[in-house]
Design a protein around this nucleic acid. Structure first.
Length: 260
DNA sequence: ATGCCAAGTTATACTTGA
């Protein structure tokens, strides 16, 4: 089975590239982030025509997450237990969707950006990650053998090597100690990064500005974290930087994991 | 060996993004 995660940066603007990418990638489950649309605006028919079931969760032009599956789609949830609220009035944003696909509990996650050090959005981000850790720990406490995949855009570069130049990120979010600690807490709760061992030195995101992609100045911020039972099934992983090329690309590349 | 920022709104400036 092949699972992928991709911050598509608008499902509507990218629909032709999304369809073409699915057609050539032989993926069974696709987790999308930043679909930037409401449920009724998602190109559900285009995806169904490819043989995939669709679960989408979007409230507005912001955020938006989805799971596409050709190996079943059961028990869809549109927030994780304890997911923090944001906004006025405070509400759970469309940043998480879970579904069981081919026996794997898949969560498509779009972690809050954090904006800048000291910004309330960073406190929200850290709280969001802490509650995700608690939820993830509780799932494994209930069943340590369950196959759970926490995938998506984590908006964290956990290691210095995950950005092209740490000096550029001095006093920035994404690399701060609290964010990295929040990420490691989820790893410590029983979720391993199953992609890094197969993709050393590679990035998953390149800013649209300043020729970041051709200059190979990117970040690794998109991850597939797998429970032990899931990690034990992983036979390989890749980052599809080809998809970052050309006109109309998302600023993120798809991340792919193969399971035995 | 890729191409000089992009997407959305009720717009023609602004927010968000990382």
């Amino acid at each position: 089975m092949r699972i992928a995660t991709w911050n598509v940066n608008s499902a509507r603007a990218r629909v032709d590239r999304l369809v073409a990418w699915i057609e050539r990638s032989n993926v069974d489950v696709v987790a999308l982030q930043e679909t930037k649309c409401k449920d009724e605006q998602f190109p559900t028919d285009r995806v169904r025509a490819l043989g995939y079931e669709v679960a989408h969760h979007g409230h507005s032009q912001w955020n938006g997450v989805a799971i596409l599956s050709r190996v079943g789609m059961a028990d869809v949830e549109t927030q994780f237990p304890g997911q923090p609220h944001w906004g006025d009035p405070p509400a759970a944003e469309a940043r998480a969707i879970g579904a069981t696909c081919g026996g794997v509990r898949v969560w498509s996650l779009y972690v809050p950006n954090g904006r800048q050090l000291g910004d309330p959005h960073l406190a929200y981000k850290l709280e969001w990650l802490a509650r995700l850790r608690d939820a993830g720990a509780s799932w494994l406490a209930q069943d340590p053998t369950s196959e759970v995949a926490l995938v998506g855009d984590w908006n964290i570069a956990p290691r210095d090597e995950d950005v092209w130049d740490m000096a550029v990120f001095a006093n920035s979010t994404h690399v701060s100690a609290p964010e990295r600690a929040a990420f490691e807490a989820i790893v410590d709760a029983g979720y391993a990064d199953v992609v890094r061992p197969h993709t050393a030195g590679q990035f998953t995101y390149w800013d649209y500005t300043q020729l970041r992609f051709p200059r190979k100045e990117g970040m690794r911020i998109d991850f597939v974290l797998g429970s032990t039972a899931l990690a034990d099934r992983v036979t390989g992983a890749s980052i599809d930087r080809q998809e970052r090329k050309g006109k109309g690309a998302s600023d993120h590349a798809p991340v792919i994991v193969d399971l035995a």
